[in-house]
Design a protein around this nucleic acid. Structure first.
Lengths: 193, 193
DNA sequence: AATAAAACTTGTCATAGGGCAAGAAAACTA
DNA sequence: TAGTTTTCTTGCCCTATGACAAGTTTTATT
């Protein structure tokens, strides 16, 4: 196989030796999901994570009033993982749902552990990935306090245009912490400028 | 020294061998901060983290309008760290400030790396600590969307009563994403019940 | 104790965004 | 191509919270 495996975009030759790549890449298994399939359901303990080769995914939690709140969107190149459930080995509160058909590459916890403890660059990359997720969450969280809904939407359009273009308004609204009604009005206001 | 070092509460004999503890604990250095000292300032790259033996600390960011937003409170037993700056080696956006005099135990990045890559249980614990921080942030973030300010305040009182009792209203308000005026009204309403 | 500076409360009024319900438009389905 | 369902828009009215400004209380300073 000449180096054109999708995972070579994730595990780069600059960061890993050839030998390490040979230990890592074959451990991933390709899986596909159809639109509306669940990758993970509330109450289950996550035993895998995935890199998305193609498609769109969202994660959400259901609040005490029964509304669902989108916690994240994922698309090609992203890691889909519930860090909390995966590492703390707890039943999750999240639901992870394919919004379109998806092609993913899956790794299970045990294999992850084995690679994590044996390959230094694998654990450095893993840590960096987790910290990057922390960073996005923090940004989103501060923005929720500091910015008005319209500003949050504008930022999302700028930072993740493909999300805004491909995902239905109601999910984007709950991600921004507003109702679909409000988001519709915000859109109108923006386009009217 | 008979095992009554403060850090023995953090690194427990159940999780580490005696030899490992001897490699870890002496690497920490005791430092003290006076009220209003800064542990970290915006723009600097974090090169340390601390465990708090006593005192109260908060972290905050300044938003585009110049208001500050408290991102977290820390107290005895907690780790004080800017995960993002520490691991990504970036200048931080956060300010970390002692709200009272504090006694802390400090470790620097280089020593951390050395321990992280050489002691398996140290990295397991480090990862767990990071994921726990992620978990609190996520909870706070979802609550910001799902709950009203009053519910968020009630939850804080329940989960971290010592914070509510020891820290001034204005900081708690920005942590909850509201103004000090609103928090004052919420308090009144609650006590009037 | 006297003064100053913070911290907190309260009043009045303004506004972002929610709740609900009815349409309109678009996307499936048969 | 008609029928159904889902998605999105719009109108009307309401509520939680903000903005600002004036007290009051508490804490620190001399």
């Amino acid at each position: 196989m000449i180096e054109q495996h999708f995972l070579n975009n994730i595990f780069k030759v600059n960061d890993f030796s050839k030998k390490e790549l040979e230990m890592i890449i074959p451990k991933f298994k390709q899986v596909t999901f159809s639109q509306n399939d669940y990758l993970l359901n509330e109450g289950k303990t996550e035993n895998h994570y995935w890199f998305i080769e193609s498609g769109f995914v969202r994660s959400y939690v259901v609040d005490t009033k029964g509304n669902d709140i989108t916690t994240n969107f994922y698309t090609a190149g992203d890691i889909v993982i519930d860090w909390i459930s995966f590492f703390l080995r707890n039943p999750t509160r999240e639901n992870i749902q394919a919004l379109t058909d998806c092609v993913c590459w899956q790794l299970d916890f045990e294999t992850f552990q084995q690679l994590f403890h044996s390959i230094q660059s694998f654990r450095e990359q893993g840590r960096t990935t987790l910290v990057n997720s922390y960073f996005s969450l923090k940004k989103q969280s501060v923005s929720m306090i500091a910015d008005q809904a319209k500003e949050r939407y504008i930022r999302l359009v700028k930072e993740k245009p493909h999300i805004v273009q491909n995902i239905s308004l109601k999910y984007i609204a709950t991600y921004l912490g507003i109702t679909d009604t409000s988001l519709s009005r915000i859109r109108k206001e923006i386009s009217g400028k």
